[in-house]
Design a protein around this nucleic acid. Structure first.
Length: 203
DNA sequence: CTACGGATTTTCT
DNA sequence: GAAAATCCGTAGT
């Protein structure tokens, strides 16, 4: 399977977020490949986007990686407990990113099940299967993504995105989640998801 | 099914 | 000191 290269990410988040749908996020750890198909992503457009951490050119140690080049991981902690995984887009100095909100487990299912519920995959209830990776915090816990991966190069061989099958699906655009504080930006339709996928966090 | 509050810590004011 | 790009358990309908 082909790994997405630097130029894929060197475009506006609005484009990259939509094109990431259906692609496969892979984390190689402890000699295993944990992978999941991306089914939901949000675009954060940087300086002019009131919902973005880099709004107005804000530049702190947390957001620093967003100011670097495209194709790197931006991982941060929200609500003191959960990690969110983003991919930095656009060239250095243009601090955009795409938040990966949800995915469908593909590979390393038993490890993913252990990471979330301390069970093997076939011990999971139906609702537990659905809740493996249907949200940004859950996805990070399932794939063992934490702040140690902040700044990781996605054009490497540890954490990367593969071009998935060339399947067809409907892309739905809707409001981003959890950004009610963002005044006018909270209504932008900058969240994209695969229409009929059961792992989407909010329909 | 929906509604609510607590967890927990980094970050910024 | 408050809020945060969230999740989960509990209680009520």
């Amino acid at each position: 399977m082909k790994t997405l290269g630097r130029e894929f990410y060197n475009r506006d988040s609005l484009i990259v977020a939509q094109e990431l749908l259906g692609k496969v996020l892979v984390h190689e750890i402890n000699g295993q490949k944990l992978s999941a198909k991306i089914v939901e992503a949000e675009a954060y457009m940087g300086i002019t986007d009131r919902a973005a951490h880099s709004f107005g050119g804000r530049r702190t140690s947390r957001v620093e990686v967003m100011y670097g080049g495209p194709g790197f991981a931006y991982v941060f902690l929200v609500y003191g407990m959960y990690h969110c995984f983003n991919i930095v887009t656009r060239e250095a100095g243009n601090p955009q990113a795409v938040l990966i909100r949800a995915a469908e487990p593909i590979g390393g299912l038993d490890s993913i099940a252990q990471n979330r519920f301390k069970k093997t995959y076939d011990q999971l209830s139906k609702s537990q299967i659905k809740n493996l990776t249907n949200g940004p915090g859950k996805l990070c816990r399932a794939l063992l993504i934490d702040k140690s991966l902040n700044g990781e190069d996605l054009c490497g061989n540890k954490l990367y995105v593969e071009a998935g099958e060339n399947e067809k699906f409907d892309i739905v655009a809707s409001k981003r989640v959890g950004v009610d504080y963002a005044e006018e930006a909270r209504n932008y339709l900058w969240r994209f998801y695969i229409g009929d996928n059961e792992y989407v966090s909010v329909k």
